[in-house]
């Protein structure tokens, strides 16, 4: 199968393409639709909020707004890791089922690049062999070197709340 990520795409092809931001979590590659990303900020002090599940790290001040921050490593039951210079917070803006907006920060190891991925070539996730719970995966995309797990980010972030 041909690699789906390419720089030179024609106008007709572009229609079937979707942009995904890729990032790394514990040497695995993940992707989130660019349309849903509000911004990417450096790691900053997170104020812990008690009585939240471990993957909810707390809240940060995003230009005067308080937004919750989730550690994606912990969300996917990967090994916890201390923040370093590459650690970033990806802020996503999601729309709930009730129409309200949910700005949420996602802590990731390292942000890579924006890829154009042909939607027709997204494969369904296999039943086994992934850390993330199956329902959080949109599908898998292949590039020259690697496989990228595309996340259904609403399910990752909002979970049961999206009901």
């Amino acid at each position: 199968m041909q690699p789906t990520a390419t720089e030179n795409v024609t106008a007709t092809e572009r229609r079937a393409l979707q942009k995904f931001l890729t990032f790394v979590l514990d040497n695995e590659h993940y992707g989130v639709e660019v349309m849903k990303i509000r911004e990417i900020i450096r790691m900053q002090k997170i104020t812990p909020v008690p009585q939240m599940p471990p993957h909810v790290k707390g809240v940060i001040n995003l230009r005067g707004k308080i937004i919750p921050v989730m550690d994606l490593r912990l969300r996917f039951d990967l090994v916890a890791k201390d923040a370093d210079d590459n650690t970033c917070i990806v802020v996503v803006n999601l729309v709930r089922n009730d129409g309200s907006n949910a700005l949420t920060g996602l802590v990731v190891d390292n942000v890579e690049e924006v890829l154009n991925i042909n939607t027709a070539e997204i494969e369904d996730a296999p039943e086994v062999g992934t850390h993330a719970a199956g329902e959080c995966i949109l599908g898998l995309a292949k590039t020259k070197n690697t496989v990228i797990t595309l996340l259904a980010i609403e399910r990752v972030v909002l979970g049961e709340d999206a009901a």
């Binding site: 939240m52 001040n61 949420t104 972030v157």
Partner: peptide, 22 residues
């Protein structure tokens, strides 16, 4: 704190202090 953190017992919200921390 946003709707994901709405009903935490004991906590009603957050505020940004003079130094920008919460």
């Amino acid at each position: 704190l946003g709707s994901t953190m709405r009903n935490i017992p004991g906590i009603s919200g957050g505020a940004i202090l003079g130094d920008g921390s919460i």
